[in-house]
């Protein structure tokens, strides 16, 4: 059964062919959506971390899915997905390297692994007299996406494990950027009783979906923005995905995050899983199931 690929190359059974991974790279800015003036918004995620806040149904998970989707199509990015709610990032389970459900011990083990990788990478860079990684480096990047941090940092487990989780995540956010470890975290209201302020304040990029009060908006964006007229409280509750984004420029911009339907996510996730398992570019096929089993 011969088929013609979009490029016009004759291939045999597509299932038998070597899949060509997409040409995306995490060094490319992620398409996030459009701003209030209708211009496309691209968010550079490499060497950055993002904190996403907003009330339930504000479009946090949609934005997180966009970021994870971009990373999933980057052949050199490993995915560690932590989702206490399971279904928000669960569609990517087969495409990711580690998927953590509502299991704080697993979450801590995963973050510990990422931390060890980070330390090893820094030792490696030091030995090579370098300060940070670049594109097409010896090793790829790692995206740690965490939906609903509050579950791990304030709900599940006991206080000790919650603190350990927050400490590990803070360390990864604080030190991970130069070795290509990117953290994208979402929570409804990142106040000090949910996640430590020392963790909250080190996220470079912020996205505040609709919040119920000006104070909640300020907690996500940083103190004082509501007073300057940037409060996500003013966003229409029906306009899901709209929110204030602090990225390059440092001033909040009203953006609307792009939306992927479940079918779209499944399609992209299946393709990502297929290319990731077949390509030996990043880790061999023997490594990947092993990683999953260990997880």
């Amino acid at each position: 059964m011969d088929a013609t690929s979009p490029l016009g190359i004759q291939t045999s059974n597509p299932a038998e062919s070597v899949p060509v991974a997409s040409v995306l790279s995490i060094f490319d800015p992620v398409f996030l959506g459009i701003d209030e003036f209708g211009q496309a918004v691209y968010l550079p995620m490499i060497y950055r971390n993002i904190l996403i806040g907003g009330e339930p149904g504000a479009g946090k998970s949609s934005l997180l899915n966009t970021i994870v989707g971009h990373a999933a199509l980057c052949p050199d990015v490993r995915l560690c997905l932590l989702d206490g709610k399971q279904v928000e990032l669960g569609l990517w389970e087969d495409a990711c390297d580690v998927f953590v459900g509502p299991d704080i011990d697993h979450a801590i083990r995963t973050l510990r692994r990422v931390q060890i990788v980070m330390d090893n990478r820094y030792s490696f860079l030091k030995a090579r007299r370098r300060r940070k990684i670049g594109p097409n480096d010896l090793f790829g990047q790692i995206l740690v996406a965490c939906d609903e941090i509050a579950y791990f940092s304030a709900t599940a487990g006991d206080e000790k494990t919650q603190k350990l989780f927050a400490a590990l995540l803070r360390d990864i956010v604080a030190r991970g950027r130069a070795v290509g470890i990117i953290v994208a975290a979402a929570t409804q209201r990142p106040s000090s009783d949910i996640i430590p302020t020392s963790l909250r304040d080190i996220f470079a990029w912020r996205f505040a979906g609709r919040c119920t009060t000006d104070v909640s908006s300020d907690i996500v964006l940083g103190h004082g923005w509501a007073a300057r007229g940037f409060s996500s409280n003013t966003i229409d509750p029906n306009n899901q995905g709209a929110g204030l984004l602090i990225a390059e420029g440092g001033i909040p911009a009203l953006v609307k995050a792009a939306y992927m339907t479940d079918d779209d996510i499944i399609r992209v996730a299946d393709y990502a899983a297929w290319t990731r398992r077949r390509t030996a570019g990043l880790g061999t096929s023997t490594e990947r199931p092993a990683a999953k089993v260990a997880a």
């Binding site: 997409s22 459009i34 966009t66 992927m260 779209d264 992209v268 393709y271």
Partner: peptide, 10 residues
């Protein structure tokens, strides 16, 4: 706003 990511999938 529709995400362009599915367009990358053959």
């Amino acid at each position: 706003v529709v995400s362009p990511l599915p367009d990358y999938v053959p």
